[in-house]
Design a protein around this nucleic acid. Structure first.
Length: 430
DNA sequence: TCTGGGGTCCTAGGACCC
DNA sequence: TCTGGGGTCCTAGGACCC
């Protein structure tokens, strides 16, 4: 059996840990640059606020409604969910984290237990220890566990845990389950299925396997099997990523090369930090830039460029240099750029670097490594961005000659404090 | 004025190899 | 006139997830 543990309205719930007065009230959390709504409380959903709605439309569509608004604060969400995950890890025989707010547990060797009670107890413990409400769904496959989780979330009667452990319960659950809610059925498949009158998960399972395979390929076939209770989605180790991306939209637009260069340097530096964090190196660095697709009145341009590293690397200087080489090739003057980003791929283990016998210089390599370690240590002790490359430095904005930091290059008018990770901020507030 | 930021997998087609 | 059979790797695009 599998259990999926999923935080309820994760970002909103993180904010509510420090603002319990907002429990029971409509709350939304915005994307970077306060762009659009990415998380909604139950009450906000009930008002009809849609996910993805641009923030400026919120005031237009809900005049006079009191809605609490937060900018996203990923440092806070990362820290709270880490605590939640620690508790789940302790409570289950096998655990793997699926996303910032979800984890799968493999419940091997727990047949003698009352799994429904196990789930209810775990959910209550997490709420008591962290303040985070969590719903738990349990089933014979990951897809069925996901269905159960939907029920646990939507109906208080389940007491935060829904268990599908018989074929009777499975069929009953699938008959009342809209096809669009099934894990693995997205926007496109939903439209195709509904157009031929397949509306419930149960309808889907009643179609012949060969037809499903023909129309929806191996992915659809897998979902079909999973809904019948046949386990076939492998439990992947998601902890080591195969590609890593850092990208940002700008608060306004940028046309000038040097400003774009600063942003891309920071994106590349952040990618190299993420690589080092998972003890990986990469062999390809891709840069992309694009104008705003919403500004049809302006000339549009988007492009990407990839550089290959002769020797795989994770040092900030090397990743940034490759990224800037590509940026020079794809940059065109005369466009208002809205977004840029860096993707590193061709990822392998840092302890097993395949060296290139023409390019590789062992002496230089060890110096670069040592320097990177020193910089990482200083930044860890004194706060991120204490030391950065020159190319990452933003032009002074505050009039005191102090350069604005990467964190501040994003609009975040309603951001809460980093209550659990930056105690200095809290002292300042006091 | 204002519209996010990460990831994964599969498939088809082309280039190239012997 | 007649033109095989078996591979690999890469890329772009499409689909999905949170």
């Amino acid at each position: 059996m599998y259990a999926i543990c999923d935080c309820d309205s994760c970002y909103v719930s993180c904010e509510r840990v420090f603002r319990p007065d907002l429990i029971g009230k409509p709350v939304v959390v915005l994307s970077n640059n306060d762009g659009c709504v990415v998380a909604r409380s139950h009450e906000a959903k009930a008002l009809g606020i849609r996910g993805g709605m641009p923030y400026y439309q919120l005031a237009e569509n809900f005049p006079g409604v009191n809605i609490a608004v937060f900018s996203s604060n990923y440092e806070l969400y990362g820290d709270i969910t880490r605590r939640v995950m620690d508790i789940i890890r302790d409570a289950s025989p096998q655990f793997y984290r699926y996303s910032i707010d979800e984890a799968f547990c493999i419940l091997d060797g727990m047949d003698h237990l009352d799994l429904k009670k196990w789930g209810e107890d775990l959910s209550l413990k997490i709420l008591k220890w962290t303040g985070m409400p969590v719903s738990i769904g349990i089933g014979a496959t990951k897809t069925l566990a996901k269905c159960a989780d939907r029920y646990a979330k939507d109906y208080p009667g389940y007491n935060k845990c829904c268990l599908i452990d018989t074929d009777e319960k499975r069929i009953k659950a699938l008959q009342a389950f809209p096809i669009k809610e099934v894990w693995g059925i997205g926007y496109r498949y939903r439209a195709r299925l509904e157009s031929i009158n397949i509306n419930s998960a149960y309808d889907f399972t009643m179609k012949p396997r060969a037809w499903i395979k023909k129309e929806f390929k191996v992915i659809g076939e897998r979902t079909w099997l999973e809904l019948q209770g046949i386990d076939c989605i492998p439990t992947e180790d998601m902890s080591t990523k195969k590609s890593i991306c850092t990208s940002r939209s700008f608060p306004g637009t940028i046309s000038d090369f040097s400003a774009l260069r600063t942003h891309v340097s920071n994106d590349a530096a952040r990618c190299s930090e993420k690589l080092r964090h998972q003890h990986s190196v990469c062999s390809m660095v891709t840069v992309f830039i694009e104008t705003s697709r919403f500004r049809e009145d302006l000339p549009q341009y988007g492009n990407n460029g990839t550089s290959v590293l002769l020797t795989p690397a994770n040092a900030t200087q090397e990743i940034v240099k490759s990224a800037l080489d590509s940026l020079k090739k794809i940059y065109r003057e005369g466009y208002q750029y809205k977004r840029a980003g860096v993707i590193v791929s061709g990822i392998s283990d840092a302890s097993q670097i395949q060296t290139n016998f023409i390019d590789f210089n062992a002496d230089r390599h060890s110096k670069v490594q040592r320097l990177t370690e020193v910089i990482d240590n200083i930044n860890r002790v004194n706060g991120s961005e204490t030391i950065v490359l020159g190319s990452q430095q933003y032009t002074a904005k505050d009039g005191k000659g102090k350069a604005a930091s990467f964190r501040d290059a994003i609009k975040h008018d309603f951001r809460s404090h980093n209550f659990t990770t930056r105690w200095q901020d809290i002292l300042e507030v006091k």
